[in-house]
Amino acid sequence: MKKNTMVALILICSSLSLIFIAWIFVIGDHGSTDEFNAKNWPKTKEKAIQTTVDYFKKEKNLEVTVDEVSSSGEYASHEIYLKGHVTNNKQEKFSVTLDSSKNFKVISIN
């Protein structure tokens, strides 16, 4: 009787482990938002750059150059991070965070 119980416990634990691993795979594969997938990232990146350039031109009366664009890499995050400098002045740097879920709204500037 003990042997049958032990086999049943091993089968149940193995099954639960496989279900958990499959769940992790599904979440990891489908957890990021659409704008960050490989197909849409170039468009997202371009819109983020244009939004940043327009923001600085309108709000700060500055021409800027964006040097780096990245996403947070976090599960289901909508944040896009941009770094750059004022055009013709590489010493005056900036960093911007945009929220792509809110029409690329600027949420922070440093």
Rank of each mutant, 00 (worst) to 15 (best):
H85L: 00
A38W: 04
K90T: 05
A22Y: 06
T5N: 08
I27M: 07
F36H: 12
T44S: 10
N110D: 11
V64Y: 07
S101V: 04
K47I: 08
A48H: 05
E46H: 05
A76W: 02
S95G: 05
A76E: 10
T52H: 01
G73E: 00
D29L: 09
K90S: 11
P42Q: 04
T51A: 13
G84D: 10
T44H: 00
T51P: 01
N4A: 13
N61D: 14
T5D: 08
N40M: 01
I27K: 15
S32I: 08
V53F: 03
K2E: 15
S32A: 06
Q91W: 00
A38E: 11
T65M: 05
N4F: 14
N61L: 13
K47R: 02
I49V: 11
T51R: 12
E68G: 02
Y55S: 10
A76C: 01
S32Y: 15
Y75C: 04
T33S: 09
S100I: 11
N89F: 06
I19M: 11
S14A: 06
L82H: 07
K47C: 01
W23N: 13
L11D: 08
T5A: 06
L11N: 09
E59M: 15
E46L: 01
K45F: 00
H30A: 12
L82C: 10
N89S: 09
L82Y: 00
F56V: 04
D99K: 04
F25T: 15
D29G: 14
D67Q: 09
T52D: 11
Y75V: 06
N61H: 13
D54T: 15
I21A: 12
F25I: 15
K105I: 06
A48W: 00
L82K: 03
E35D: 11
A38Q: 14
K3M: 03
T44V: 10
A22M: 09
L16E: 04
E59L: 06
S100F: 02
N89C: 00
N61S: 12
T33G: 01
S108W: 04
V53L: 07
H30Q: 15
D99V: 01
K2N: 09
F94T: 09
K83T: 08
H85R: 01
D99A: 07
S15M: 07
S95A: 14
S95Q: 13
I107A: 02
K57R: 13
I24L: 12
K90M: 04
L62N: 10
V69T: 11
S17Q: 07
K3D: 04
K2L: 08
A48G: 01
A8M: 12
S14M: 14
S72R: 02
M1G: 13
S72L: 02
N110H: 12
S71A: 08
L11G: 09
M1S: 12
H85Y: 07
T5I: 15
K60W: 13
K2W: 08
L98I: 03
E59W: 07
Q50P: 09
E74R: 15
V86H: 00
L16A: 03
I80Q: 05
F104I: 03
D67W: 05
K105E: 14
D99G: 04
V64T: 11
T44D: 00
E63W: 03
L18H: 07
S32C: 07
S15K: 08
I12W: 00
N88R: 05
N40E: 13
